[in-house]
């Protein structure tokens, strides 16, 4: 087994890793659908979405590795950190194919993440970090499609049969408490906003809600009340689901250090 790496974490690096890790872990969960989606066509679509997100995460991790400056590469950052050094939102590490979750959870999560990413990419377009702005410009096109695809499914299921409606509403009840974290500011957000690196978390809340409202209306979904609970994945404090996810995601790189295609 290969030992974990320790990073020298600045506020800038934490800000980047939150975005990169959210994409990376979301992609990992979507990849679990490969070969299991309800129909072949959506199986390929989910794999495509996951690979888009993985590509975005790779670009961000490669850039983060360069900024960190200890000679780590994107693979080391993706696969050789300890759990507490991942800064993804808790939402994206929750199971999608087990623990009561299903295809409705999957599409709703894709909607939540895409509706968060789109205004984020737009905000990053004017970042003082030119590389980050370039990554954001390319990623925004992909995210626009993710949003259209997920919104379509959420409406289709929410406004579909009794069974699909019941499942979509259950998925919303499960996911909603984890949405608060997406807009929870801390000192990393304050530093990023102040220095012109990127928007603070709370600035994305209103655009996110604006995207969701018409989708929820078409999907016959009621926006739940604000949650009193705020998860803490972006601070490195994860749910019990993160350990097993990392064990699977990291196994190849830990067993075959430096392995490449």
């Amino acid at each position: 087994m290969t030992a974990s790496i320790a990073l020298t974490l600045t506020a800038d690096l934490r800000y980047l890793l939150r975005i990169a890790d959210t994409g990376l872990v979301h992609a990992q969960r979507l990849a679990e659908w490969c070969g299991h989606a309800p129909v072949l066509e959506e199986d390929i679509a989910l794999a495509n979405l996951g690979l888009d997100l993985l590509g975005q995460a790779r670009a961000l991790l490669a850039h983060a590795a360069k900024l960190e400056g200890s000679g780590h590469d994107e693979d080391a950052l993706a696969f050789l950190r300890d759990e507490r050094d991942y800064f993804n939102f808790t939402l994206v590490e929750l199971p999608l194919r087990r623990g009561g979750a299903d295809f409705a959870d999957t599409q709703l999560r894709c909607l939540f993440v895409a509706a968060w990413l789109l205004p984020l990419w737009q905000g990053l377009g004017t970042s003082r970090d030119r590389d980050l702005a370039a990554i954001a410009g390319k990623a925004a096109k992909e995210t626009r499609y993710h949003l259209a695809h997920a919104a379509d499914w959420v409406v289709r299921l929410g406004d579909g049969s009794d069974e699909s409606m019941r499942r979509m509403r259950a998925a919303l009840a499960r996911a909603w408490p984890y949405g608060a974290e997406l807009f929870d500011d801390d000192e990393v957000d304050a530093a990023a906003a102040e220095s012109g690196l990127g928007p603070r978390a709370s600035a994305l809340r209103e655009p996110w809600l604006q995207t969701l409202r018409p989708v929820f209306a078409d999907a016959q979904l009621t926006m739940p009340a604000a949650s009193a609970f705020t998860s803490r994945g972006k601070r490195g404090v994860h749910s019990e689901h993160m350990g097993p996810l990392l064990a699977e995601m990291q196994s190849l790189q830990r067993a075959f250090p430096g392995g490449v295609w």
């Binding site: 066509e41 390929i44 679509a45 695809h149 379509d152 289709r156």
Partner: peptide, 20 residues
């Protein structure tokens, strides 16, 4: 060819299946 519930989904899935 592919299976899809309606025209809109067919276009999206065609994009995902045949223009990757």
């Amino acid at each position: 060819s592919l299976h899809a519930p309606d025209a809109q989904a067919a276009v999206q899935l065609a994009r995902d299946v045949y223009t990757r």
